[in-house]
């Protein structure tokens, strides 16, 4: 297969290797390719854009815990794509899926909760090379679903309550990045501001994970 991909190499290599052994030629080609690619990669580390540069783009994946009611709130999994508009100022795409499926012995209920947020954000960040902290306002939409079922259903006329809501989302994201390589450590604090009158008990969460610089 390597021979078909590089006919030129096929003509040149025997002259270099002074051998016509096909297996050896293939092995030599593979090793050379690996060395060239890794060398290019190492050079790319030195030329990675800093957090403040206009060329900065990243993707963060985080998993966390609810703040107000950690044992009941959905467990959030967050994906954030961030791109600088100008140094220190960026926009981002925010996706968060929170799930919790549990049978609670104290409530004597089984419940499922899904909290899914999609939004875009804009904000500022501080910190150049190793450390960066960003504050972004997020605007978008949220889908919330929950189903609670009493295990002692004989006591209830209707033993199940289902809540399904599609609502606007407004939030604040505090995003911290640590590391100067392509892959860095990421942590996030997300404050869900809507509904405003339920702000104390909204699904705020804290999460940890990794990020990748493009």
């Amino acid at each position: 297969m390597l021979n078909r991909l590089s006919p030129t190499l096929n003509k040149v290599l025997p002259i270099i290797m002074k051998t016509n052994n096909a297996f050896m030629l293939r092995l030599f080609t593979l090793i050379t390719t690996i060395l060239v690619v890794s060398n290019l990669t190492i050079k790319a580390q030195d030329t990675l854009p800093s957090y403040q540069s206009k060329a900065f783009k990243s993707l963060d994946l985080n998993c966390g815990i609810g703040i107000y009611s950690p044992t009941y709130a959905p467990v959030p999994l967050t994906l954030v794509y961030q791109q600088n508009i100008k140094p220190g100022f960026s926009w981002l795409v925010f996706s968060q899926l929170g799930l919790r499926f549990k049978t609670d012995p104290y409530l004597n209920m089984r419940y499922k909760t899904i909290n899914w947020i999609e939004g875009g954000g804009i904000g500022a960040s501080f910190g150049k090379k190793i450390f960066n902290i960003g504050v972004h306002a997020i605007v978008g939409g949220r889908f919330y679903f929950s189903e609670y079922t009493a295990r002692n259903s004989d006591l209830y006329n209707k033993p199940t309550v289902i809540t399904k809501k599609l609502m606007p989302e407004l939030g604040l994201l505090l995003n911290m990045k640590v590391g100067k390589k392509k892959i860095y450590f990421s942590s996030q604090l997300y404050a869900s501001l809507y509904p405003f009158k339920n702000i104390l008990e909204n699904f705020h969460n804290f999460s940890l994970g990794i990020g990748y610089k493009f």
Partner: peptide, 18 residues
């Protein structure tokens, strides 16, 4: 009760039914 306290809603609805 509040709409988003579902474990409470279950009991409150039942109480109202009774």
């Amino acid at each position: 009760c509040g709409e988003l306290e579902e474990s409470i809603v279950l009991g409150a609805q039942e109480w109202d039914y009774r």
